[in-house]
Design a protein around this nucleic acid. Sequence first.
RNA 1: GGUCCCGUAGCUCAGCUGGAUAGAGCAACUGCCUUCUAAGCAGUAGGUCUUUGGUUCGAAUCCAAACGGGAUCACCA
Length: 633
Amino acid sequence: MEQYIRQALLEAAPSLFGTAISDSLIQFQLTRRDMEGDLTLVVFPFVKILRCSPQEAGEKLKNWIEQNIAGVSHCIVVNGFLNIVLQKSYWINALNQMQQNAQFGLQSPNSKPTIMVEYSSPNTNKPLHLGHLRNNFLGYSVAEILKANGHKVVRTQVINDRGIHICKSMLAWEKFSPLNENGERETPANTGLKGDKLVGKYYVAFDKALQAEAKTIMQNWQAGNFEDTPAAIQEAVLNFEQAKLGKDEKAQAAIDDKIKELAKNQTSILREAKDMLVKWEARDPQVYLLWTTMNGWVYAGFDQTYNKMGVSFDKLYYESDTFLLGKDQVMQGLASGVFYQKPDGSVWIDLSAEGLDEKLVLRSDGTAVYMTQDIGTAIDRFADYPDLHGMVYTVGNEQDYHFKVLFLILKKLGYTWADNCFHLSYGMVDLPSGKMKSREGTVVDADDLIDEVTLTAKEMTQERGHLEGLSEQERETLYAQIGLGGLKYYLLKVDPKKRMLFNPEESIDLTGNTGPFIQYAHARISTLLAKANYQVQPLASSLDLKAEEQEIIKHLAIFPVTLEEAAKNYSPAVIANYIYELVKLYNTFYQSVKIIIEPDQELRQLRLTLSAVVQQTIAHGLKLLGIEAPQRM
RNA sequence: GGUCCCGUAGCUCAGCUGGAUAGAGCAACUGCCUUCUAAGCAGUAGGUCUUUGGUUCGAAUCCAAACGGGAUCACCA
């Protein structure tokens, strides 16, 4: 309708205004809920052209629209706004079309270019935590949203399965794992621990040992004992100590950190880890065996967690497979002059012309860094999927700079698709106590959280009791759907870009703007329709509509635009807010009118139809968020 | 220090490319289940949209600065 009036106005402009007008002059918005009207045309832009008061301009537009636009009942001019009231039959017809289209609002599948969406991308040395949950739910949901907008989507992740951090947990396991009576070190099988948890335990053990050894070295340095310390390091330490004199506490602490870094680099345990990395890159059989074994444990653990989370992937990339390609690319780029080499052999790119810094792309010892690997992975993906148009990287905003650099490098290497790469940058998740810090043990474990939320859902669902007739199996499924639904909704309803607060108590709330609130509305409608034995039937356009009913149809009508907006902004929050609003409107309606027990059959059918379309739209919306829509609860 | 992000009710968040009297939820208080699931609904109260300038018919929204918070500037990932 908006488009229709816009077009008509543009065509009629010369006779109406005496001149052609630009499209941007015609600004529509939805009429405020507390005013009469459906669509509002902003009058101010026309005032200049018509050289008259807003009131006069409004009157002129009012008369023209009332006489020339079919479907318009009448218009009201108020405060420089022209509120257009559509005929009731317009909304009945809209509802009729919605009920006949089970895919209402969705674009036809695979009608748009292929997009790859990357999310999760964990390290294989620690279990998934709350931050990963936001990441995974976001990525999964954005993939669903792009699909619903007609894109072909490939879900993927890159698994950071190599590098110094992986060697750390491997080494710690070899060094510190106790032997059992069979002479075996700890494994998931003989401890019953989940694989990712077991490996994470040794990653922590490594850090602890590293800290201890570094502390001893620093104490030696304090005491003036520089035995075993290279002269260059000794000099650096002494210089730092010198620099501390006369500085305030904060500056001194910063310098102490730098000294600590130096000490860590002098530890034997870190040297061993580095040696292991070199051996790994040389494919030392023993190191490789250990690596595949321990990674296998982690993957089994991750799979369990992904399963519980309800996320999945179409294709996996392993850093260990792509980093060599990355190195090749760097060498080629070096030859073509995109990169340059320093005397020590390290390879860099100079982005100072773009307002960025110089960035390392290959270490002096020839080993790959994160950037090397990311270059390789990106190129690999476009080679694997010839019709791939673009990529979405779901990665936290602490890596904004990294991705700016990555996309620039890819472009400089000559890959035009670099322009279609997008960093879906999301904010950190804070706890009421502040930031999550692994060292302080405040990290919220993903498995624990999911279990907790499911348990709470169970308790609360049993309290309300709408469970009669459900099997034990069905009940358990329902608890998980509600618990996880609440958690997902809680994490997705906030604009991804924004840093958010995670309050454990609120995340499992059932009332207000929550997942269960929306699921409940869905379940309530489902049982209602079943009881009423609802069948799709065209509605007579002569039916009258109550305000509550019309509000719902109006909101349903913007679902397609909302879905597009969510895709454009890569924002599940847009969908979450939309369905929340829809449910509130529906609940008001539900509470104020009779539906099944309405004696007038035409009215009853209208209200059932409205309920059915709302139910379908809630279900679609929840699916876009990766949330289940229970039939009853 | 350079660069980037953020600042809306006590708390958590909406507020589309500038538009009417800035909205929800939670927490507090009042009502509503012999009628379709009360995980609901209706209502009360709660605001200098951090501050100051600028742009204009009009600014929470755009621009600049200040203040406050965060991220990042590694041969870490």
